[in-house]
Amino acid sequence: MLYLQTFIDALMIGGVYSVIAVGLSLIFGVMRVINWSHGESLMVSMLIALYMNQYTPLDPYVIMLIVGAVMFVYGYVLQSVVISRILSRETDREPISCLLFTAGLGMVMSYSVQIIFGSKQVMAQTKYNGRALHMGDLVVSLPKLIAFIIAVVAVAALWTFLQKSEYGRAIRATSQNRSVATLMGISEKRVYSVSFAIGTMLVGLAGGMLIPYFSVYPTVGSVFSNKSFIIVVLGGKGSVPGALLGGLIVGLIEKFGALFFSESVAQIIVFLMFIAILLFKPTGLLSKDKG
């Protein structure tokens, strides 16, 4: 029973990791930009959700959708106004200046929040806090179950969009070869803006769904962003199903590692796996990228 419970817990937390990582993966896959402000975007999303929860009567999951929309607009504007200008000067396949820019942006976001809101560590009070489904001896955390379902639906919807829609094909074409895609009449800048916006929207959704069980504070993003980078490398940079698989694998390693050893040892195992992937399968499990 303990193993089954651990398996369920692993799936739940793995789903959360996936939805946070998939946005990062998409942005990298299409634009080759490593968004170092990903964790801080999550933190800002959580903060917006926290205040909306405090000052409006809306359900946290309705708030989550609003935050997702807000972050979509944020991502679109950020890419089309700022990042596109930096990117247009880059000739490298993986632009270093964008990496530096997003790292700087992340620091600005984190310290600005600290200065404006202080270092409080607060969790939203919602009707979902501390609630769980009890099935015999098995327990499933309600906010995490909802988060898992949202994660799977979001990843599936994104995958379908990328595979089946006209615009999704345009995004994939641009990710494969931006010069050829431009020659085919695809607006590279618009594709990048939409991709970046989808990436930040997913982080917005993740931020909204985290608030019923996770505290908000200026550096909360680092709790998840480090794992997101591992998941993206594990699943394959740019692979949407890879991000889902990577998240679930990290969840399983963490939970079973903690069961057999300890939480601290489990984290070591996760990082050892990260090193092993970089050494033996640098393209990740599901990426078609040849590296």
Partner: peptide, 12 residues
Amino acid sequence: ESFESGSADFST
């Protein structure tokens, strides 16, 4: 049991 500060989950 030990854990790393800033844990994402204590379920196990």
